[in-house]
Design a protein around this nucleic acid. Structure first.
Lengths: 184, 184
DNA sequence: GTCTATATAATGATAGAC
DNA sequence: GTCTATCATTATATAGAC
């Protein structure tokens, strides 16, 4: 893995916050410039291909975050009861306890989707597979494991939307708690 | 209720389809013009305040649809076991069996949200209340009814997103079936 | 009610100085 | 690596003919 510039290390989380809050199209370069404190030309220095490159690198950033904080945990040698709890705690941080939206959701309702769809699909599928493995490790059947995994992804995405639409963070945190309790 | 012009009757479903597919900001007037077959000036004739008015009228259109096809059913004198099934069948139509997205989701990840948030929140709350009443009618406790209602909204929103992101309509239809089965 | 033509502002993007 | 200045393009929106 190539060493990233220190600037990008701070830039990518900022861009993630922008894209998942107002979406891809509404995030104009002027707005990005204003919110990051960097001039447009500076942004193009870091991302020569413009917005498209920004969102693609943010997707990689999120993908890496998922590997380090979710997939790593789900694949660890930890006790199976702890895995879901640790995943939920990580997600609580990623989504600011339900305050921040999910990039997947933000991009799903966007034109950019077609171009980045394969990476998105891939991350979701890995997540589903890893969750499925956890449930099988816990003694569930293959079918039930697959089902539970899918339901968890649905619940996370759905509760983030309802949470945001109703402006109630508790909707998200309550669902996280339910996920933690599945194996207890 | 004032009589709508016949033109708008065909225009609003088209606009709904556009907004929920590519989102609010990506739906430029040129694109709307192209997809509806109407010139920009004609669009401004029907919606003098432009895109903002379009999305607001689409929201009313969807709200009315929900009253006629979902809230009406949930409040009817029908047998309680049939209500969820009829709701799911209606939603299957609204979302083209998982192919089409949800306007709520599309607008939640958009800048326009702040202005239309109250109407959106309101519709979601009515939906939740009506569902809650159905479950209480079926003999569930107040607490469990509230919980089930919230879970249904979450599942619908979440499965639509996962369905679209993974390009698998079956994800949505499977969740609809589960909702139908709750009271069986 | 629809159109063509146009005004005006904002967009993504680049050149070149520092 | 950042900036100011600027470009072509596209955006929203309007005027006025039919």
């Amino acid at each position: 893995m190539p060493t990233k510039s220190p600037k990008k290390e701070t830039l990518l989380p900022q861009l993630l916050e922008i894209f998942r809050t107002i979406g891809y199209e509404a995030a104009s370069l002027s707005k990005i410039s204003e919110l990051t404190g960097l001039g447009k030309a500076s942004l193009y220095h870091h991302f020569p291909k413009g917005k498209q490159q920004m969102v693609e690198e943010v997707l990689v950033f999120v993908e890496n975050w998922m590997y380090e904080n979710v997939f790593f945990v789900l694949r660890s040698e930890d006790k199976v009861e702890n895995k879901l709890e640790k995943m939920c705690n990580a997600l609580h941080g990623l989504y600011n306890g339900g305050k921040s939206a999910c990039l997947i959701g933000a991009l799903t309702y966007s034109e950019i989707l077609n171009q980045s769809l394969s990476k998105l699909k891939n991350t979701l599928e890995i997540w589903a597979k890893d969750l499925e493995a956890v449930f099988m490790e816990a003694g569930k059947s293959k079918e039930e494991s697959k089902d539970l995994a899918e339901e968890i992804l649905i619940t996370i995405q759905g509760s983030l939307i309802i949470s945001k639409a109703q402006n109630k963070k508790s909707v998200f945190t309550r669902q996280l708690q339910k996920i933690k309790d599945i194996l207890n």
